[in-house]
Amino acid sequence: MISHPSRQCTVELQALPSRIGQVRRILSAQLRYWHLDQLIDRAALGVTELLTNVHRHAQPDKMCTVEIELLLDRLTVSVRDHDPRLPVVEDAPDLSTCGRGLAMVAAMSESWGARRDASGKVVWFTLPTGVSGVSGAPGIGLGLAEVESVGEVEAAGVVG
């Protein structure tokens, strides 16, 4: 029996650099609302890497959905896009300025993976919360059309 319900936050966006920063701010506000401040840096790094991959590689468009889900003692961050090609962890040359994103996600997360789905693919990672029975109200799914800044997230009541 599950004693605590799942909590979710979903954001749909076009993976452009300006939108990636907005998603980081929304993710940070949501994790503060769930009292998971200790996960903000790692979750923000992971979602930035996944969204950067969508921006750089996804075809035919850069549209994607970010989902943050808290279930019991595990936070899962996933990014869904329309490109069915699965990402590959590369062995980047020492002086390369790119190609290390998935290796960083793998190193900082408890687990990660990718799978194809009916509309493209989903790439995800998990972080342990370190807390059993996390308190806090259920999350509210917000789209970027509705929220343009952390101040608006706080005004919308997502941050408690």
Rank of each mutant, 00 (worst) to 15 (best):
M1H: 09
P5I: 06
R7V: 04
L13G: 00
A15M: 01
L16R: 07
I20D: 05
G21E: 10
Q22W: 04
V23G: 01
R25S: 13
R25W: 02
I26E: 01
L27V: 12
S28E: 08
A29E: 03
A29R: 01
R32K: 13
W34V: 02
H35K: 15
H35M: 12
Q38Y: 01
Q38K: 12
L39Y: 07
R42A: 13
R42D: 10
G46D: 02
T48Q: 13
T48A: 14
L51C: 06
T52C: 08
T52Q: 15
H55L: 06
H55I: 02
A58R: 01
A58L: 04
Q59E: 12
P60H: 04
V66L: 07
E69T: 14
E69K: 12
E69S: 13
L70R: 03
L70N: 03
L72D: 12
L72C: 09
L72T: 08
D73E: 11
D73L: 07
R74G: 00
T76Q: 08
V77D: 01
V77A: 01
V77E: 01
V79F: 08
H82Q: 12
L86D: 09
P87V: 11
P87Q: 09
V89M: 11
E90A: 13
E90F: 10
E90V: 14
D91N: 14
A92C: 12
P93W: 14
S96F: 13
T97R: 14
G101S: 15
G101T: 14
S111P: 01
S111Y: 05
G113W: 06
G113P: 02
V123K: 00
W124S: 05
F125Q: 03
L127S: 07
L127T: 07
L127R: 07
P128W: 01
G130I: 08
V131I: 15
V134W: 03
P138L: 15
P138K: 11
I140N: 02
G143R: 10
G143H: 07
V147Y: 00
V150G: 06
G151P: 00
E152F: 01
E152T: 14
V153H: 00
A155F: 07
A156F: 08
A156T: 04
G157D: 06
G157C: 07
V158M: 09
